[in-house]
Write a protein that binds this DNA or RNA. Structure first.
Lengths: 216, 216
DNA sequence: TCAGAAACGCACTAACCAGTTACTTGGTTA
DNA sequence: TAACCAAGTAACTGGTTAGTGCGTTTCTGA
């Protein structure tokens, strides 16, 4: 009718498949993280992504497929962030401490990662079964920590015989458990586990735990 | 019509409020553990408990209240089992190792405990807010571990300054995380985390982790 | 033995919710 | 400029789900 310049109705973003998909994925991540897979509402996801529900089904077949995409993206995101740490360039002890610190900080800044993984496990990880990209990125993680461990043994900083997979699991565990159970934990232990001081204490304790575990 | 002896229609248990409540609670525990709070179906719980759904609402007001009861019972059960260990009678190191071992075995034998706690945390522990019994039983747990720790410091077996709450959290964490994430973990690390050998390895690793953390 | 209470069960409902049908709008290109 | 296709929308559907209304059976004690 009027001009041909690229504008749209007030407030609405311009038409773009990529942008729409990204908005849906972001809204879905929040909704799934907040309410779990069964508790999440597709109508809410559609509304929050400024989209019609039909679009969701156009780009992502079903609620389950959408969850699968959200989950895969979450794994790629954390593994990408880990990779950017460039731990290979640091001394073994320094590298390991930085990794423990990073893991903690990442969980703290991205609580949705934890909740998504919990949901995935409630469904026996069926949404992750086919994902080659997840396997590949995780392989890199194990060899990253394995590399630090090997270098540390060489320099005499670390003791021999520590399984890198067990170490990986333990580093994740001591942060993940504290944060995923922060609500029940705060009631059970009758102290606010999310207070600044409490969080600092926990990080220090976790670094101590890991250092004592691997140091010679 | 016929006799007055206490029999009922074939297969049906005799009328008993206590038995009915217990059956509902047991069925609910399984259903909530398997599918989470939102994913659980009250019809399934009613059917599995050999009961009519009406009974469920008679004894437990609502789905949420039922979940609350199941959760509270789960905490009481684990804390009761812990208490039966009589750790006060053992040497500090022995007591601590036994406790780590117990925690692991309990999670392994009662996977529903883990899933219920996860569900509770997804809902920000609102189902646990009022429960005095949960607070009380957990207070005993902290003082139990704290007692072992103190005795160990006295005998020179353990170092000073370890926070009993942090230690408690860590002991739980290294078992809990491995088991709650066993499905995604088995995919990510490309090995079956639930194989007998893998489970034995993990327990040994966990004992090592805790011993190195607290020993002088 | 009978009255009342407590255990039990059928059949229903109103709201909800994942997924669909049938359509309009807008941008690109031949 | 017209034809085509991708982006976008509203209204709907059929099955599901938590929760109830109301009647029946069984037990207890006076």
């Amino acid at each position: 009718m009027d001009s041909k310049i690229k504008t749209t109705k007030a407030g609405k973003p311009p038409r773009s498949a990529e942008a729409t998909k990204a908005r849906i994925l972001e809204a879905a991540k929040k909704e799934f993280a907040k309410n779990g897979l069964a508790g999440a509402r597709v109508d809410v996801i559609a509304e929050r992504s400024l989209n019609n529900k039909r679009m969701m089904y156009h780009y992502f077949e079903s609620k389950d497929k959408l969850f699968q995409m959200v989950l895969e993206q979450a794994y790629v995101d954390i593994r990408t962030a880990e990779h950017k740490l460039s731990l290979e360039t640091l001394e073994p002890k320094e590298a390991l401490e930085k990794f423990v610190r990073f893991t903690w900080d990442y969980y703290l800044k991205h609580p949705e990662f934890i909740t998504l993984v919990n949901s995935a496990n409630l469904h026996r990880a069926k949404h992750l079964k086919g994902s080659e990209v997840v396997k590949m990125t995780n392989r890199k993680l194990v060899s990253l920590v394995g590399g630090i461990l090997d270098r540390g043994v060489e320099t005499g900083a670390f003791r021999k015989g520590v399984d890198p997979v067990q170490l990986n699991i333990t580093i994740a565990a001591i942060g993940y458990y504290y944060l995923t159970n922060r609500f029940t934990g705060s009631i059970i232990f009758e102290r606010d586990l999310m207070e600044k001081a409490a969080l600092d204490d926990r990080l220090a304790f976790n670094i101590e735990t890991i250092m004592r575990l691997v140091c010679a």
